[in-house]
């Protein structure tokens, strides 16, 4: 009887220890979720605050005197004089233009990436041609080599082409796809059962027909993965668009991230238009948020993929 009791006691002690461990882990995880979410809330809180009253209420959890003013300022729907009166910056932010530029750069990079990566990956995985494996080694090399040396020579190349300060200058280095994209899709094609493709070929389809009508349609999930990764990288990119786009001096080649950085850099004195910057940030996050809402699971899985390359 007492033996049974002491056994029960011991069991409950391990159980208790386990429970304590779980509680500690939950507290830790919840704390981090909070540290993640609070700054995101702070974007919203600032974007909807009244710029002039921000300083007086630095720690209020809700927007200070709720208003859409910052959005109007950023989107340029009110005259500059009114923007200045609100505490905004005197230089107009051509938000729609920057948004358009960002869209063009991202769309070209994502589409180019899909087409050219898939074509090359298919050739390396399925077609037989002399020197195939040797040529593929070039991709492995490009994949493992640090890219830090590339900025200056690529800038000089774009400069020599006369493309500095243009959108094609920003797009050029990524338009033809990436070594990672080819590598990633090749892995997928290699793991794909080729029965369907063989059947189509026996039915008389040519190589291009098989690629287009058979291989591509069943490759939509990995293509989506690579597109999401490319989208996030390109939409958020700053360094290359900054230098290739003319460091914010060419309005027609300024993307959102660059515009916001320049906007910020020009306001070193006085109180910067923080509400405007947060409103701009919030608008620029919309496409990413939409993608995340619709294909969130796939996006999260994609990231996990990228580590197993």
């Amino acid at each position: 009887m007492s033996e049974q009791l002491s056994h029960d006691l011991k069991l409950s002690r391990t159980k208790r220890r386990k429970l304590a461990g779980r509680i500690v882990a939950w507290v830790f995880l919840s704390a981090w979720l909070l540290i993640t979410l609070l700054p995101l809330w702070w974007i919203v809180r600032m974007a909807f605050s009244t710029q002039r009253e921000l300083l007086a209420n630095p720690s209020s959890f809700l927007p200070v005197n709720f208003t859409w003013d910052a959005f109007k300022r950023v989107l340029g729907t009110i005259p500059v004089s009114e923007a200045i009166a609100q505490g905004g910056y005197s230089r107009t932010l051509h938000f729609w233009l920057y948004l358009r530029n960002t869209f063009i750069v991202t769309a070209a990079t994502v589409l180019g990436g899909i087409v050219f990566n898939a074509m090359a990956a298919y050739a390396f995985a399925r077609l037989k041609f002399p020197g195939r494996d040797k040529i593929f080694n070039i991709y492995i090399l490009a994949l493992i080599m640090p890219t830090v040396l590339n900025l200056i020579p690529n800038f000089i190349l774009i400069h020599q082409l006369g493309w500095v300060g243009t959108l094609q200058g920003i797009i050029a280095p990524t338009f033809l796809g990436s070594a990672f994209g080819v590598f990633f899709l090749r892995q997928f094609f290699l793991g794909l059962n080729r029965d369907l493709e063989d059947a189509a070929r026996i039915d008389g389809a040519g190589i291009i027909g098989v690629f287009w009508h058979v291989a591509l349609p069943i490759s939509l999930p990995p293509l989506l993965t690579i597109s999401i990764l490319t989208f996030i990288d390109t939409w958020n990119n700053f360094q290359w668009p900054y230098f290739a786009g003319g460091m914010g001096t060419q309005e027609n080649a300024t993307v959102l991230t660059v515009a916001l950085a320049v906007f910020r850099a020009q306001q070193q004195t006085g109180l910067p238009d923080y509400t405007g910057m947060m409103a701009g940030t919030l608008i620029s996050l919309i496409p990413t948020i939409l993608i995340f809402l619709f294909v969130g699971r796939n996006a999260v899985d994609s990231i996990q993929f990228s580590g197993i390359k």
Partner: peptide
């Protein structure tokens, strides 16, 4: 024909990787 198509498929990508990744490193 297969070789021809293969080259057609890889040339754009190979051009990109060579011109914007490998050559710049050497040029750097």
């Amino acid at each position: 024909q297969e070789t021809l198509v293969a080259w057609l498929f890889i040339i754009p990508s190979l051009l990109g990787v060579t011109v914007f990744v490998l050559v710049p490193t050497l040029r750097g």
